Every structure is written in structure tokens, then in C-alpha cells.
Computed example of a mutant assay.
Amino acid sequence: MTEKFIVGSIENCDLPALGINELNVRVDTGAKTSSLHVDQIRKIKKSGKPWVTFAIHPNIHKVDDWIHCEAPLRDIRKIKSSNGVSEERYIIRTTISLNEQVWEIDISLTDRSDMTYLMLLGREGMGNRLLVDPSKTYLLSR
């Protein structure tokens, strides 16, 4: 096992398999599942297996810039959002890169347009890799 590293409550991460770099992520130990804001989500079949296609604009300051992605559908789960409402969400598995380390995480795809950050990194995605200092932000960018 690699040594745990300290992150702040907000960091930058990459989702290399999706072609997304320098994405601001809210690190949230109160959330079980990681989530990603996406638009235009569609369930499709590819080689007879369920996949999802979706679009994301990873730079909140350039909303006209879109990245179109597709990934195998891992699961459909009922997830309770921060406002207490449960909804069924598509779950994908992809790679995350933080602090020059890369590992796989499950991410729920949802509408986070009313949230400040496009991505939330929950406990399952952190695994036993991170320690969170909630009083700091962007510790890995220094």
C-alpha cells in the first residue's frame, strides 16, 4: 500500500480515461459515492453491452467548451443527494489522478448544476489513500 497523502477540501484532479484534466473537485468525507455533473446523458448498447454517453464542460468559466464521453455502465443505484432526495443514477468506473497517483473509482452521473463544483469525491473514491484537512484547499497544487 502507498502512504496516505493529505488533501484539502477542494483539489484539482484528472479523469484521464474521460479526457478531463484540471477538474476542480470537492473532497467530501460526508458523501459515500463520488459524483460528476454531466449533461446529455444517454444509455446506449455497444457490442451488446450497456454503455452511457454524456457531455461535460469541465471549465465552469468556458461553458461553450464541451467534452463528449462514453463509458461502460457499471450499475444503476439509488443515491440520496445532499438535500435528502433519492434518485436513480448511472454509475461508471473510471480512473482518477491525484498527487501523481492513479486509481479506479465509481462515479455517479447526475445534474450538479446547482452545486459549486462539478465533481464530488466521496469516501468510496478516496479509499484508504487520502487524509483530508478540511481547513485547507488546493494542497496538491502548491
Rank of each mutant, 00 (worst) to 15 (best):
S113G: 14
P72R: 05
D14S: 15
T33L: 08
S9C: 11
S113N: 07
R77K: 12
P16M: 11
L139W: 10
L120Y: 09
S47G: 09
K78A: 00
I44S: 10
V38C: 13
D65V: 14
K136Q: 15
H61G: 04
T53L: 01
L23E: 10
D65P: 00
Y138I: 01
L130Y: 08
I56K: 05
Q40D: 13
L73Y: 00
P50K: 11
L23C: 06
I6S: 09
D114T: 15
M115K: 13
E88Q: 05
R42E: 15
L36W: 07
E104M: 05
V85Q: 09
F54P: 01
E87M: 01
S86Q: 12
T94Y: 12
G127W: 08
D75S: 02
S35C: 12
L139G: 13
G30N: 10
C13H: 05
H57R: 03
D65W: 11
N24K: 15
T110K: 02
S113I: 02
T110Q: 10
T95G: 11
M126D: 06
L139V: 04
V132N: 06
K78E: 08
V27R: 09
I60L: 14
E88W: 05
L98T: 01
T110D: 12
E124F: 08
T53S: 08
D14Y: 03
H61K: 09
N128W: 04
Y117P: 00
R89Y: 08
M126E: 03
K4R: 15
I107T: 03
I44N: 11
